[in-house]
Amino acid sequence: MGTNLFHINQKNAVQFVTFRTYESVAYYLKKHNKEVIENKPKQQYELDQFLDVNRAGAVLNNEIISLLISLFKSKNGIYYHLFAVSIMPNHVHLLFQQLQPLSTIMQNLKGGSAFIINKYRADPKRLWEKSYYDKVIRSEKQFQMTYQYIKNNAYKANIKDASKRFYGMYESE
Score class of each variant (00 low, 15 high):
M1F: 12
N4R: 10
N4K: 14
F6E: 12
A13P: 14
F16E: 03
V17Y: 00
F19A: 05
R20E: 11
R20V: 09
T21W: 10
T21C: 12
E23C: 15
V25L: 15
Y27C: 12
L29N: 11
K30R: 11
K30E: 09
H32W: 07
K34P: 02
E35Q: 07
E35H: 06
K42Q: 15
K42D: 15
Q43R: 10
Q44H: 14
Y45R: 11
E46V: 05
L47S: 04
Q49N: 04
F50S: 01
D52A: 02
N54H: 14
R55C: 07
G57A: 13
G57M: 13
G57D: 09
A58E: 12
V59A: 13
N61D: 13
L67W: 07
I69K: 14
K73I: 02
S74A: 06
S74N: 10
N76S: 09
H81C: 08
F83P: 00
F83Q: 01
A84Q: 06
V85E: 02
I87R: 06
I87A: 08
H91Q: 15
V92L: 14
V92I: 09
L95Q: 02
F96H: 04
Q97N: 14
Q98W: 01
L99R: 04
Q100R: 08
P101A: 04
L102E: 04
S103V: 08
I105L: 15
M106C: 07
Q107R: 07
Q107T: 02
N108D: 06
G111S: 03
G112V: 00
S113K: 11
A114N: 14
A122N: 15
D123G: 04
D123Q: 14
R126S: 13
R126A: 06
L127G: 08
E129H: 10
Y133I: 06
Y133A: 06
R138W: 07
S139Q: 13
S139Y: 15
S139E: 12
E140H: 07
Q142T: 09
F143G: 03
F143W: 05
M145W: 08
M145S: 09
Y147Q: 04
Q148T: 03
Y149M: 00
I150T: 02
K151G: 01
N152P: 00
A157I: 00
N158V: 02
I159D: 05
K160H: 12
D161C: 05
A162F: 04
S163H: 07
Y170R: 08
Y170C: 07
Y170M: 13
E173F: 14
